[in-house]
Structures are given as C-alpha cells and as structure tokens.
C-alpha cells in the first residue's frame, strides 16, 4: 500500500498521463491546473515538500507539474 506521499506522486503522474496526448508542455500545465482546482492546501503543500526532498526520485513530468504548482502558489 502506498503512503500519502507516494499516493500524491502517483496521482499527479496519473493525471499527467491522461493529459499526455496533448504534448508534454500542455499536459504539465493541465495537470498543474487540475491540482490547483482539486487538491486541498495540505496536499499542495506536501507536493512542494516532495519537490524539495532530495531523497525522493520524482518522475520527470511530476517534477515539472509540482514545479508549476510552486509558481502558481
């Protein structure tokens, strides 16, 4: 079973995959937008924590999405 952080990474990745046919850049934007609209503040904060955690090997698109989330925040 995934812990919360793994779950958030998984979710972001899953959303990205569903937007992926739009192309990388658009998909990253759409995913970040999705997180803004539907994730609660604590989840968003955790995403940013994940981004800053060097221990975590974050998939590239998710890193891009979380990066965008930081800009939006």
């Amino acid at each position: 079973m995934m812990n919360t952080r793994e779950h958030l990474i998984y979710m972001a990745g899953q959303i990205f995959r569903n937007f992926a046919s739009r192309g990388e850049e658009a998909a990253v934007s759409a995913t970040a937008e999705h997180l803004v609209l539907y994730w609660d503040p604590h989840m968003k904060a955790q995403a940013l924590d994940i981004l800053d955690d060097p221990e975590i090997d974050l998939p590239e698109p998710v890193r891009a999405v979380f990066g965008k989330l930081r800009v939006a925040a």
Binding site: T4, H7, L37, Y38, W39, D40, P41, H42, M43
Partner: peptide, 12 residues
C-alpha cells in the same frame, strides 16, 4: 481553497 476528498481525508 478546495477541501479534502474522502480518500484524501483518510490519507490525511
């Protein structure tokens, strides 16, 4: 800000 969904509540 949006709140938590049920599964996220349980995660939290």
């Amino acid at each position: 800000e949006p709140g938590l969904r049920i599964p996220n509540m349980l995660d939290a």
